[in-house]
Design a protein around this nucleic acid. Structure first.
Length: 575
RNA sequence: GGUCCCGUGGUGCAGUUUGGAGUGCACGCCGCCCUGUCAAGGCGGAGGUCGCGGGUUCAAAUCCCGUCGGGACCGCCA
């Protein structure tokens, strides 16, 4: 049907007779018998010279057969890769007529996303979406190649699985053959990949669709895609190397440049210096520890579990209004308040709280924060977890560059704790799933209670890129005695564990190899590689923030008969 | 569960603060003119439930309440 792609014709093709297929991108009409058509396919556009007598409109699908020739001197278009040539003496076949598009396909204009999604099939024709989808395919392909080279075997795992009450909310599918029973859709293939290890697969991987029924965000969809991997008889260092190789290969396939070795930071340092377990290290504004400095202060606000601050270079030009707005935000995020201090030209401090600080405290504060004239100092005093969290958010608010700027800064975060914190009832809040292996030297701490549990470090690690959590992994528990202790620490009673994970524990009774694994989000990796703020831009058919699809109008009600088949009856709607 | 922003011809915006006739800009669309344009150009034209509902008012795109849709974030995402 066609001999060439539109965007690939060059001067060398001059003289050839070609057949092209594509959409009418733009037309320029000059009188009765001359019109220029920009014909577009996924490779780009080329100018076609036709008789204006043809009825040709925007987005008509054409097959054009004609002769490639150099454009007349002075009419070449240097802005177009195909700008030296045009196709003339054309026979034009209209393969499809088209309504005028519901929005301009022009890249210069932003269009309301709801409309783009409703007409996604039109939106996908745009250069941006074509590029994003093709980059994504390249990433998948590079990942597969890398994993295969490293001895991993691609295995598919089931989509209809047992519901596990832990973690995120499961999507659920009613069973027709067993009314009243439900399958869950997988949040990840976690348990199955561990079963593969028991099954002697040695090295498993899968580009896996995962589903979690949690509120959507710019970097979160109900459905997302992960590289999921697991390997036997390996250390966490080995796993990080496998994953680094795969991610570096994917990055290289897109950017042409293989990233340097990924640095690593401990979870503890990340929390203290960046206030988050996924630091964006493209910029400074690190958190500065001040607790010791105010250990004996008279100032009540600073008599807190933790006092930390950030220095905003040149930030003293913030207005009172802006500072009040920041204070409001900080309160919404959970802090009691925000202390701000402006550093004046003479290095004195301009702040509502200066009168509560001793001269020595002021001097020490300036020194600890490396303060210079014109800086803004922001300080939060609170519970340590709160102070870190709030300052971490504040840091992003004040300094985070746009996604496409600042380069690619991969970072391994290692030595995650087994438990991140204690909740209001004093129960430990797990940092990972309950099959995460503690560090050998911390195993004894499994017998402790309360705060002691927080000291346990896990053999768990996250991969972070520019402040986005790409993924996480861990060495898994493969010994039943340690597993039992971990369940005890979690507060999972033995019968519960039996009911929820019995099949895995049984499997481990039949010869489980030591194993470790990882999973990372391909949507997020691709979004950052193409410079998109939102993963919807790298997903062909995404959902809106309320989980709907404007194109197909999912989710929708189903027929009463269908419900009856499934043994279901609906409750009345909440009014 | 919560905070904030947006909703005006097909598209993107201005108009909303300070109520006074659906007012304006750009693109697109339709028709005519036009043989070297490329974001073509010129002339003319069509196209509106100002998201929806209620309230205040002599009068509401504009003020108030509610609601729907979209977006960003907090919570949530072991």
């Amino acid at each position: 049907m066609r001999t060439d792609y539109c965007g690939e014709l060059r001067g060398e093709d001059s003289g050839r007779t070609v057949s092209l297929c594509g959409w009418v991108s733009r037309r320029r009409e000059h009188g009765e018998h001359l019109a220029f058509i920009d014909l577009r396919d996924h490779t780009g556009i080329v100018q076609v010279v036709v008789d204006h007598a043809h009825d040709i409109r925007s987005e008509y699908v054409l097959r054009v057969t004609g002769k490639v020739r150099m454009r007349p001197e002075g009419t070449r278009n240097p802005n177009l890769p195909t700008g030296d040539v045009e196709v003339c003496d054309c026979e034009v076949e209209t393969l499809s007529r088209a309504e005028p598009p519901p929005f301009p396909l022009d890249e210069r204009l932003e269009t309301d996303e709801n409309i783009r999604l409703k007409y996604r099939y039109v939106d996908l024709r745009r250069e941006r979406m074509q590029r994003n989808l093709r980059v994504r395919a390249k990433v998948n392909s590079a990942i597969r190649r890398s994993m295969e080279q490293q001895g991993f075997v691609e295995i598919e795992t089931p989509m209809l699985i047992a519901n596990t009450p832990e973690g995120a909310r499961d999507f659920v599918v009613p069973s027709r053959l067993k009314p009243g029973s439900f399958y869950a859709l997988p949040q990840s293939p976690q348990l199955f990949k561990q079963l593969c290890m028991v099954g002697g697969v040695d090295r498993y991987y899968q580009i896996a669709r995962c589903l979690r029924d949690e509120d959507l965000r710019a970097d979160r969809q109900f459905e997302f895609t992960q590289l999921d991997a697991e390997a036997s008889f390996v250390s966490q260092v080995d796993v990080r190397e496998f994953i680094t190789n795969a991610v570096a290969s994917a990055t290289e396939a897109v950017t042409g440049q293989r990233p340097a070795e990924f640095p690593s930071i401990t979870w503890h340092d990340a929390m203290e210096r960046y206030g988050t377990d996924k630091p964006d290290i493209r910029f400074g504004l690190e958190l500065i520890e001040l607790t010791g400095l105010f250990a004996h202060t008279e100032f009540k606000v600073f008599q807190a579990d933790c006092v930390k601050g950030i220095r905003v270079p040149g930030g003293a030009d913030h207005t009172r209004k802006q500072l009040d707005a920041l204070t409001e935000k900080v309160k919404l995020w959970g802090a009691k308040g925000l202390v701000w201090l402006k550093v004046e030209e003479d290095l004195s401090l301009n702040s509502p709280i200066t009168k509560f600080l001793s001269d020595a405290e002021t001097e020490n504060l300036l020194g600890a924060m490396d303060a210079e004239a014109g800086d803004l100092l922001l300080i939060v005093a609170d519970r340590r977890a709160t102070a870190r969290h709030v300052l971490g958010l504040l840091r992003l608010e004040l300094g985070r560059p746009p996604v496409a700027e600042g380069g690619l800064h991969f970072l391994w975060v290692v030595d995650f704790p087994l438990f991140e914190d204690l909740d209001e009832e004093g129960l430990p809040v797990p940092a990972h799933h309950p099959f995460t292996m503690p560090k050998e030297e911390d195993l004894a701490l499994l017998d402790s209670e309360g705060k002691g549990l927080l000291e346990i470090r896990a053999q768990a690690y996250d991969l972070v890129l520019n402040g986005w959590e790409l993924g996480s992994g861990s060495v898994r528990v493969h010994r039943p005695d340690i597993q039992q202790k971990v369940f005890d620490a979690w507060g999972i009673a033995r019968p519960d564990a039996e009911q929820r994970f019995g099949f895995l524990l049984d499997a481990f009774g039949y010869g489980a190899p030591p194993h470790a694994g990882f999973a990372f989000g391909i949507d997020r990796l691709v979004a950052i590689l193409v410079g998109e703020e939102n993963i919807r831009e790298v997903i062909a058919f995404p959902k809106t923030q309320t989980g709907g699809d404007p194109l197909t109008e999912a989710p929708m009600e189903i027929a009463p008969d269908h419900l009856t088949d499934l043994g279901l009856r609906l409750l009345p709607h909440k009014s």
